[in-house]
Amino acid sequence: MIRLTYTVISALVIGFIVLPLVLIVWMSFFSNQILSFPPEGYTLDWYARAWSMSAFRNGFFTSLQTSLCASVLALVLGIPASLALVRGEFPGREAITTLLMTPMLVPAIVGGSALFVFYLEVELHSGLQIAGTMAGLIIAHALIALPWVVKLVTTALIGSNRSVEEAAASLGAPAHVVFFRITVPMIWPGVVAGALFAFVNSFIDLEKSLFLVGPDRTTLQIALINYLEWNFDPTIGAVATAQIAFVTVLLLLTSRYVKLHRAF
């Protein structure tokens, strides 16, 4: 009886989370001119239309480019930092770890607006334009990505067995061989998971990018929001379905390396 109650409640709650996404996928195939229920027929036209719209196509490529660059930057900054934070012997490591995690804790809307004002102040004093440029967007997104890299790589490092490295070293392997043949393979799952989490979290960001996109450079999330302001047709469903498929594939890939729920 108790079990049954829990099962029913859980099914309802999980449905409440998942069903909206199932519905939007289903409705992207409706032939209705506006998004409404029930369906008048089925079509694939909305996918063609979504792809033919430059706002969505460019938005997707801008997002892809931004998130890729931001993830690479986050890995380049985050992996050495994680190694030093876990293996290092200098004071203040805990404080520094907290500092590197703060971009995750500061609300995106606050962080984004602060970065926007900062970019414009820098431009005012040095003439260097950052706001509305690709570089400005990538910096903002690398800040979203960095905490995920640090979090997952440090976790992998803490869980790795140091004595394997010692064994290799005592058998005569030089430091760089130990690092590339032993340390890197041991923390590899953490690195891959960090990279994928960094990419996905950057790709789906809406709030931080709001302030930093230029007139002809919008990310996919912003293109979606802008389109929804004036339109409500199944094109939205097609774009949403593409994003759901894309993110789901990336996450299923990640789940082969780490237990996803441990990443939070």
Binding site: P80, A81, L83, A84, L85, V86, R87, G88, E89, F90, I96, E165, E166, A169, G172, A173, P174, A175, H176, V178, F179, T183
Partner: peptide, 11 residues
């Protein structure tokens, strides 16, 4: 011979 990350440099 172990790879050393003892210093704060990489951070």
């Amino acid at each position: 011979r172990l790879p050393s990350f003892r210093g704060a440099g990489p951070v």
